[in-house]
Amino acid sequence: MVDNIAATAHIALTEEDRKKLAAEFDPIIESLAVTADDQLAETVNPLPVNNVLRDDVVANELTNEQALSGAPEAQDGQFMVPAILDGE
């Protein structure tokens, strides 16, 4: 169960994480049970949100260099990732 959720969440666990989560995870979820009136609407945002439109002009953009400035690895103006295809 914990390993499945960790895989879905893309999080590697240490052995210690796994032990603690195995003990804590289900009891936390059980402790968070709520009962609600089915007639009520679901709130996604606390205040009414209206669409706000702005002029269709480019603004507040990052340069390529800025966008890559925090990347752990970059090459030729692009983010570097491990090869997806053999030899590529």
């Binding site: 914990v2 959720i5 960790a6 895989a7 879905t8 969440a9 893309h10 999080i11 590697a12 666990l13 240490t14 994480d17 603690k20 989560l21 804590e24 995870f25 936390i28 979820i29």
Partner: peptide, 22 residues
């Protein structure tokens, strides 16, 4: 992705992300 998140996040963050995923 999985290794970077596993190494970078503390336990409480991992637990919260996993609870949220659940």
């Amino acid at each position: 992705i999985t290794a970077s998140r596993g190494a970078g996040f503390g336990y409480a963050t991992k637990r919260r992300v996993m609870l949220g995923t659940q």
